[in-house]
Amino acid sequence: MIDVSSITAAPDIFPATSRLTASNRWDHFLARVGWKRSEHRVKPGLYALGKPTPESPVFVTANYTLSFDALRSAVDGIDGYILVLDTQGINVWCAAGKGTFGTDEVVQRVFATGLKDVVSHRKLILPQLGAPGVAAHEVKKRTGFKVEYGPVRAADLPEYLRTRQATAEMRSVQFTLRDRATLIPVELVHIILPTLIVAVILYFIGGIVSSLAAVTTVLAETVLFPILLPWLPTHNFSTKGFILGGLAALPFALTVFLRHPDWSWYRQVGQALGFLFAMPAVTAFLTLNFTGSTTFTSRTGVRREIFAYIPVMAWTFAAGIVLNLAFAFIR
């Protein structure tokens, strides 16, 4: 009798190259504009990049196409294995925070792919930003594989592999102008429909100027704020938002005097103040929400901002609306 329980097929190893095709680049563009956000996925499992041998390095990444593609294109010319974890199509750092790029998933994927029988060494190179979800010593205990945290950015991998030492620069996360600007399209895509709806409603209530005010408020947050972030005064995103919103509101406040010279002075001032109160409050609320898209705000800091400034936003917004409505009826 043949003992069939001992016959198991070796798990599949999928081929991978370092080449990014036009189709890949189109997929990246769609991801960057927020099209089908959670569907930019790669099948989890073990991939062979080039012609790896049992001594070749094993790189670990998330099953988000941008993560997988950044990794494989960065190690062009290097033969290795890529262990793709199932992070539900979420990038490394966010998945690590959620726990899906985590100790359990690393362990499970190592066993599911039969990695022990594929490579002779016992080392896994993980992206540094997987660390919030992975306890390196736990992985070692449960799989025998030692976790080595590689650089933050895949682009630094070739240099890292030469020295096996990460420089301070490789280990630090910035938030450059380019990083910030990359966020603008997806922010715009999410906010454009609600903004247009509000603009249309405001057109019927307050005319074209009110519509423009709404659109300006939103554009200030989505486009100007990411660009100007480090140069706006104060550390708090709410107060930066109040300042930016105030600046955006100034032209509107001034046009009240230019467009309605026939109004009484208190009606002019009331309307102008309406813009100066309502617009910054909305901008500040939106910029406070931008904290989640940055690489450096702490949970404690955001919570403190919420408690300190949400009431201020609510009161100034209400004051702005009341002023606008009051002077619609008072002549």
Binding site: G97, N289, T291, G292, T297, R299, T300
Partner: peptide, 10 residues
């Protein structure tokens, strides 16, 4: 104390 730190979620 790590955890979800995004304003919208909180």
């Amino acid at each position: 104390e790590s955890g979800v730190g995004c304003a919208a979620a909180m």
